[in-house]
């Protein structure tokens, strides 16, 4: 459903652009704008499958868009200092309202060439080690850490395995849990599997309204459980992977609003929402000591399922 609507909207936008060049078909322009509005209003109640489509949308803002919009004076950091630069993790040191922070995330491309370059946002161990290097450094200099999660998962390849994909992810999870600076993670697109979580052990985890976060991609889920990756639409509903589901599970702390039809229809709106959230959260964390921050984060994940266990216990 969302796919059809989205394609129609794109067609309208293209026509609007064309008319704007001519400048003399105002009536037609008005009509098209109305049609667009009408279509967007149909995007109120999206299914989980719709959200997966939007979360992966080619035009959805990417990590570099967020960093450009929300931070100043970016110094990009590269490499794990152990032998490789992994371009699927992008970021560095920047200013957030004048305060130095470490900010990075999974990097997806806007077209095939970019995606090939950034490996579709699928890090190899070197990417996770680069992320850990940046985070340990942030801790050293007392900088808050902000991460943007948007990945189909850690890259499954021969070299990735040889270079220790499993232990690189595990090390990030362990070390992140004990960091003595505030960490805020935002799932902006798709957050799939350990490859997403490896930069997601944060004091606060937020999700965009149409982002998804899951143990595995719906295709992988369907393939493992039913040996049929084509049943992914069915998997989407079952998996409870939307921001609204995860908020109910207490896995995330808050949902960031998106404009109707998805973030790509009005990125500025989303930037503003994230900016407000970050200001509020970071201001709060300013008052906490390093040990308090680490303890809060530890307990968040230690007891992330405590309510679910307690509910099951009370049911007997």
């Amino acid at each position: 459903m969302i796919r059809d609507i989205d394609e129609q909207i794109t067609a309208i936008e293209n026509e609007i652009d064309k008319i704007a060049e001519n400048g003399d078909e105002l009536k037609k322009l008005k009509e098209l704008k109305n049609n667009r509005k009408e279509l967007l209003s149909q995007c109120e109640n999206l299914t989980a499958h719709d959200k997966v489509y939007l979360a992966r949308h080619r035009k959805r803002p990417k990590v570099d868009d967020y960093i450009d919009a929300l931070f100043d004076d970016l110094f990009i950091q590269k490499g794990d200092y152990l032998g490789k630069e992994d371009k699927s993790i992008y970021g560095g040191i920047a200013l957030f309202h004048g305060t130095p922070v470490t900010v990075f995330g999974h990097r997806k491309g806007r077209n095939l060439n970019e995606n090939m370059e950034f490996n579709f946002g699928m890090p190899e161990p070197e990417g996770y080690r680069k992320a850990l290097r940046m985070m340990k450094q942030a801790e050293k200099f007392g900088r808050p850490i902000i991460t943007f999660i948007d990945t189909p998962g850690a890259y499954p390849g021969i070299e990735a395995e040889e270079h220790g994909q499993a232990s690189a992810i595990a090390k990030n999870l362990a070390e992140m849990s004990a960091l003595k600076v505030p960490v805020i993670a935002i799932v902006t697109g798709e957050g799939s599997s350990g490859g997403a979580l490896a930069i997601g052990v944060a004091n606060k985890v937020y999700m965009l309204e149409n982002a998804v976060y899951s143990v595995l991609s719906p295709e992988g889920f369907a393939s493992i459980l039913w040996k049929d990756s084509k049943r992914s639409a069915e998997a989407c509903d079952l998996m409870k992977l939307t921001a609204q589901d995860l908020k109910k599970f207490n896995v995330i702390d808050g949902i960031i609003k998106e404009p109707l039809g998805g973030a790509h229809h009005d990125p500025e709106f989303v930037y503003k929402e994230i900016d407000n959230m970050l200001v509020e959260e970071l201001y709060k964390y300013k008052k906490m000591t390093g040990n308090e921050l680490a303890k809060e984060r530890y307990e968040k994940f230690r007891f992330i399922d405590a309510q679910i266990i307690a509910d099951a216990e009370s049911r007997g």
């Binding site: 992810i169 899951s214 143990v215 896995v251």
Partner: peptide, 10 residues
């Protein structure tokens, strides 16, 4: 689902 993923962090 997602709660299994969270066990990795826990």
């Amino acid at each position: 689902g997602i709660l299994s993923l969270m066990q990795m962090a826990k």
